[in-house]
């Protein structure tokens, strides 16, 4: 389902439809995240991907062109590169430990400590929140600063009033 949506994204040329379809794609992936037990992630993906990202894409489209020019330029070469890389990746998955097995190495290093001790140490049931805000507080601080910086960047780029003639600064 997700793959079908993604492939449709690759085929489409109407950017308006692409923006809508990327919203649907985010929603479908959010459903998949719920099935994989990542409720917090699904929540974020649904609100960010399907909500805000679509609005941003659409408002950019309102400012620019809404249709892609169909130029089948070097598509074949790109396809060959992609197929080779994809084959290498799938070959690589053979070495990955099987899906959903509790004995996988990822479940043995830090996670058991979080799962077992965080209810006593932090005292809140949602482990994702306690790791996010407490154990990994530095990461989240840095990440908040990243968003802060992105906002400043966007404001610097398009926050002011539009220039009267865009050709002026080329001279």
């Amino acid at each position: 389902m997700l793959a079908v949506t993604a492939l449709a994204l690759a085929r489409l040329h109407d950017l308006f439809a692409i923006a809508m379809l990327s919203g649907i794609y985010s929603l479908v992936s959010a459903v998949l995240f719920v099935m994989l037990d990542a409720v917090d992630v699904a929540f974020t993906e649904a609100s960010v991907g399907a909500g805000v990202a679509t609005v941003f894409l659409l408002s950019t489209l309102a400012l620019t062109a809404s249709r892609e020019k169909t130029v089948p330029r070097k598509s074949l070469l790109a396809l060959v590169v992609v197929v080779i890389t994809g084959a290498a990746l799938i070959y690589g998955t053979i070495d990955i430990p099987p899906f959903g097995d509790p004995d996988n190495p990822i479940h043995h290093h830090v996670a058991p400590r979080y799962v077992h001790d965080s209810p006593q140490e932090i005292g809140i049931p949602n482990m994702v929140t306690s790791i996010l805000a407490s154990y990994r507080g530095y990461d989240t601080l840095g990440e908040t600063v990243v968003i802060f910086t992105a906002a400043i960047g966007v404001l610097l780029l398009i926050g002011g009033k539009r220039r009267v003639s865009s050709k002026d600064k080329n001279e």
Binding site: S47, V48, V55, P125, N126, L132, A133
Partner: peptide, 21 residues
């Protein structure tokens, strides 16, 4: 309620912004 169920600052901020948008 992010301490008890799914949710937290990121999601709440985005939902709030979505309302204003």
């Amino acid at each position: 309620h992010g301490d008890y169920g799914p949710g937290g600052g990121f999601q709440a901020g985005v939902i709030f912004a979505a309302g204003i948008i």
